[in-house]
Design a protein around this nucleic acid. Structure first.
Length: 479
RNA sequence: GGCACCGUCGCCAAGUGGUAAGGCAGAGGUCUGCAAAAUCUCCAUCGGCGGUUCGACUCCGCCCGGUGCCUCCA
């Protein structure tokens, strides 16, 4: 069974067939760099990173491009507010983007084009559109003439006539039709500007993706992704520009991820109900957030909440602990007979791939991972239950699937200590005192003084410390 | 107003025209001095009302409830 994905254009799941053999070109709309990224940006990045990873897992030769919009009204406004050059604003937030997304284990795409590095390519497209009579200059601005593109509205399911009638579009004397959108915007004095045949100005928002997608991935490429909110007008306009220019559909499969909600409402800047990634990292491990983000299907809305994050943390801890315990148990086995780690195979991997092949159903993939973890834990607890080689295969499978999902990237020890640091920030535990209490308890246990032992454990619990007596001695963690 | 989408166990979340994955929480068992962790077992008939069908949670209609897009937005 091959990969199927939901194409926003047809509103159906379609078989994925790359345009050129084994090559896959994918372009995803990145962010406008004028502020810190919030969870919604994180979701889009994680969703498409997971798709990217899975395509590579399937053996495709993937060329992934994700842009930075580094010139736009919001950036200019921000620069004015802070009294710094606009380049300073974009520099700052691009650096923040890398930091925040890096912690989410979002891998860097092959190409990360910036709008301001592609002004000539945009001007070339705009000129071509003007030449073809599909765009017109008006007092230093250049607009795309929507009426020149009959298929306008197909992606978003909108009817141009009704859009005009609905007319919530702002009145602009310079436009021939309210639906026309800017390809080039005349700059006001003091604003950033580039020379153009129509005078100094800056590019409209939509043209950058058309120009950069074409440059790096070709006239027509396989997948174009982004958040659902980009369907209209951004992607609709992009299609109009690109197709208007070349005469060919620019994209074969359009993919859009759902929103992150807060109390059932879309998280957004304008509503002010957003959490930035770095705020969340103050109290939650980034990998916990990643797990939360992929625990629902990418097209569904997800409700962001403290409770959901806590649930995700429990699940992730269970995985790390299971991986840790199994790894130790296998190391012991290894002494008796050498085990060869290979590529995981068998029912688990097949189920995992079947889930991912079904429009990247990470929720089902995680269900299979949970089942596999349980089977692995069973072996860890009782190594006689199945051959060690089988357990190794399970462990390998879990790690490989985790790799595709961007999970379990750290060593269990690393993860546990990072989680500890995070939780300890508020508790500020006295490690010395904890060790002493544990020692005291174990001494009491040796003399079967259970009352004292329990008193020690209660004291630790009071501090927020949880005790576990294991074969390797007493271990503790923060509850 | 126009166009979409959603409503599944206490909570989160998959799914299919033939009788509901997984996780959290909960109950009981194993293990443990007792716990914890792990593991085993148990735990839903799918918003409401009609219709199509041998059979619907899954298809159609209506209703109720919720959201999104139509404007910058991942």
């Amino acid at each position: 069974m091959g990969l199927k994905l939901f194409n926003s254009l047809s509103r159906k799941k379609e078989d994925f067939v790359p345009l050129q053999g084994n090559h896959v070109g994918i372009y995803v709309c990145g962010v406008t760099v004028y502020d810190y990224c919030h969870v919604g940006h994180g979701r889009a990045a994680v969703v498409f990173d997971t798709i990217y990873r899975y395509l590579k897992h399937l053996g495709y030769d993937v060329l992934y491009a994700r842009n930075f919009t580094d010139i736009d009204d919001k950036i200019i406004k921000r620069a004015a507010e802070e009294g710094i050059p606009w380049q300073e604003v974009t520099r700052k937030y691009i650096a923040a983007f890398y930091e925040d997304m890096g912690r989410l284990n979002v891998s860097p795409p092959e190409v990360e084009p910036r709008a301001t590095d592609h002004i000539p390519e945009m001007l070339e497209m705009i000129a071509s559109l003007v030449e073809q009579g599909k765009a017109y200059a008006s007092d230093g601005d250049v607009f795309y003439s929507v009426s020149s593109f009959p298929a306008y509205g197909r992606l978003s399911g909108k009817n141009p006539q009704e859009l005009v009638a609905g007319a919530r579009v702002e009145v602009n004397e310079k436009k021939q039709s309210p639906l026309d959108f800017a390809l080039w915007k005349k700059s006001k004095p003091g604003e950033p500007a580039w020379d153009s045949p129509w005078g100094p100005g800056r590019p409209g928002w939509h043209i950058e993706c058309s120009a950069m997608g074409r440059k790096y991935l070709g006239q027509t490429f396989d997948i174009h992704g982004g958040g659902k909110d980009l369907i209209f007008p951004h992607h609709e306009n992009e299609i109009a520009q690109s197709a208007g220019c070349s005469g060919h559909a620019p994209v074969k499969y359009w993919m859009h991820n759902g929103f992150v909600n807060i109390d059932k409402e879309k998280m957004s800047k304008s509503l002010g109900n957003f959490f930035t990634l770095r705020d969340i990292y103050k109290s939650h491990h980034p990998e916990v957030l990643r797990l939360f983000l992929i625990s629902s299907h990418y097209r569904s809305p997800i409700d962001f909440s403290e409770k959901n994050l806590e649930d995700a943390e429990k699940v992730l801890c269970r995985f790390y602990e299971g991986i840790d315990a199994a790894t130790r148990a296998l190391a012991v086995q290894e002494v008796k007979e050498p085990l060869e780690p290979g590529r995981a195979e068998g029912p688990f991997m097949e189920k995992f791939e079947a889930a991912m092949n079904d429009d990247f159903n990470t929720a089902v993939a995680l269900a299979h991972l949970n089942e596999e973890l349980r089977a692995l834990n069973t072996w860890t607890q009782d190594p006689a239950s199945e051959p060690a080689a089988d357990a190794l295969n399970r462990l390998t499978g879990i790690k490989q699937a985790g790799q595709v999902l961007g999970l379990f990237a750290k060593s269990p020890g690393e993860f546990q200590s990072e989680l500890f640091e995070l939780k300890n920030q508020s508790l500020a535990l006295d490690t010395q005192k904890i060790e002493t209490l544990i020692e005291e308890r174990n001494a009491a246990r040796r003399t079967k003084d259970w009352a004292t032992a329990d008193r020690c454990r209660d004291a630790l619990a009071q501090m927020g410390v949880l005790i576990e007596d294991t074969a390797r001695g007493t271990e503790w963690k923060i509850k």
